[in-house]
Design a protein around this nucleic acid. Structure first.
Lengths: 206, 206
DNA sequence: CCATTCTGGATAGTGACACTTTCTACTATC
DNA sequence: GATAGTAGAAAGTGTCACTATCCAGAATGG
C-alpha cells in the first residue's frame, strides 16, 4: 500500500499523514526504493486510532504521541497504560484549589477509601473543580461528589469488564485506550441526553 | 471598583478583562468620566463565571459568548438554557456516523424511550462515537451504552435536584450552567479515579 | 520512450485562537 | 506637577494542527 491508498482508505489527506509520520504518530513504511515506501494494515489501524484520539477524545497531537509511546513500549503493564491515557486526556493545568476545596476533596476520598489517590492528577483536577464551584458561590457542590462517585464506580466496573473481555481478541492496551477515550465521550453525551430527558419531564417541554 | 481592582480580585490581567469587554463577555462598567468607568460585584461574578467556563469547562470564548447571551436574554426558559449550554460544550463537529452506527444508536434510544432526542446534537455525537468504535474494530462497544445510560440517568437526577435546590438562592439559569459544566468535569475526574481503583484491585498495583 | 502522475522528505506558510502589546489622549493621586 | 492609572483602538504574539510548495527521483499509461 502506498501513501495515497493509505490516504484513500483512511480519509486522511496525504500531507496530514506525512505530518503524523514526522511527529512520530505513525511508524514509517517499509522502504522499497530511494523514494518509495510500503504501508500495511497496521499503519491503517494506527492511523484510525490517531484520528479517534484526536477527533473523539480531543487529545492534542503531543498527547497522542505520549499514548503511542506507551503502546509501543513493550515492558508496560496494563495498569500503567491507564495512567498515561488518563493523564493525556486531562486538562493541561487545572485551576489551583484553595485549602477549603482541598479539604473537601480529601474528606470525600477518605469516605470512599481512595486516600491513596490523593495525588493523582484526576484528584487534583477534582479539587480544582470544587474550588471553582466555591468561588462561584456554590459551596454545596462538593456534596454532589458522592452521588457522582457512586455512578462512576458502576461505570468503571463496566469499563474493566469490557477491556478484560477483549483481552484475548485484540491488543489489551489498545482496547484500554479506546475504551477509556470513547467511554468518556459516550458518557458525556449520555449525561446530556439524560439531563434533557429529566428536564423535559420535570420542567416541561421547550 | 476600577479595572485594576477587578483584575486584582479576580486574578485576571487587565488586558484580558479589556479583551473580554470587547468580546461582549463582560458588560461595560458605568462610565464616570471620559476615560473612567466603575465596575461592581456583578462584574466580578461574571468574570469568575467566564473563567470557570473557559478553564474548567474548556469552552471557547465564542461558546462562552453564546452562554452569556442566553443568560442575559430575559425571556428564556430553564429547559432551553440547558440546550444552549450543552451545545456550547459539545465538540465542534463529531465524526460522521455510518449507517450501522446510526442503527445501533437508534435502537438504543428506542430501548430507553428517548426516540424524540434522535436529532439532538448529543445523540449525533453519540452515533459518532459508536461509528468510531466500529471503525476501530470494537463492534461490541455499543453494548456498553445501556450500562452508561443507566448511570447517566442517576446522575441527571442528581443534577436536576441540585439546580432546583438552588433555584431560590440564586439565579437558576446560572446555577444550571455551573452545575452542567462543573458536573461534567467532576464526573470525568471521578471516572478516572474509579477506573484506577478498579484496575488496582483487579490487575494489581503498579 | 516519454509525458504525466506519484513518492518521500524538507522547508515554509496558513488560519484560527486567545490573548498581549503598544499607542493615544486623558484622569486620579501623592 | 510627576507618576501611575484609564478607556479604547489597533496591531502584534505564540501556539497549534495542519497545508502548500519544492525537489529529485520512481511508477505508470500509451
Amino acid at each position: 500500500m502506498r501513501i495515497s491508498e493509505l490516504s484513500r482508505s483512511s480519509g486522511v489527506p496525504v500531507p496530514t499523514i506525512k505530518y503524523y509520520l514526522r511527529e512520530g504518530l505513525l511508524p514509517s513504511g517499509e522502504r522499497t526504493g530511494r523514494n518509495q515506501a510500503a504501508y500495511g494494515g497496521e499503519h491503517l489501524r494506527r492511523l484510525k486510532l490517531v484520528r479517534a484520539l484526536v477527533d473523539v477524545g480531543g487529545l492534542s497531537i503531543a498527547a497522542v504521541g505520549d499514548v503511542i509511546d506507551v503502546l509501543e513500549a513493550s515492558d508496560v503493564v496494563t495498569h500503567q497504560v491507564l495512567g498515561v491515557v488518563q493523564r493525556s486526556m486531562g486538562s493541561d493545568d487545572p485551576p489551583e484549589a484553595d485549602r477549603a476545596a482541598q479539604d473537601e476533596v480529601r474528606d470525600f476520598l477518605a469516605r470512599r477509601g481512595w486516600e491513596t489517590m490523593a495525588d493523582d492528577p484526576a484528584a487534583r483536577s477534582l479539587a480544582g473543580v470544587v474550588a471553582t464551584a466555591r468561588k462561584l458561590g456554590h459551596h454545596r457542590f462538593a456534596a454532589q461528589l458522592d452521588a457522582y462517585a457512586e455512578a462512576s464506580v458502576g461505570i468503571a466496573r463496566q469499563d474493566l469488564d469490557y477491556v478484560l473481555l477483549h483481552s484475548e481478541v485484540d491488543d489489551v492496551l489498545e482496547s484500554m485506550v479506546i475504551a477509556t477515550v470513547l467511554g468518556d465521550a459516550a458518557l458525556v453525551a449520555l449525561r446530556k441526553l439524560a439531563q434533557r430527558d429529566a428536564s423535559a419531564r420535570l420542567l416541561g417541554e421547550e
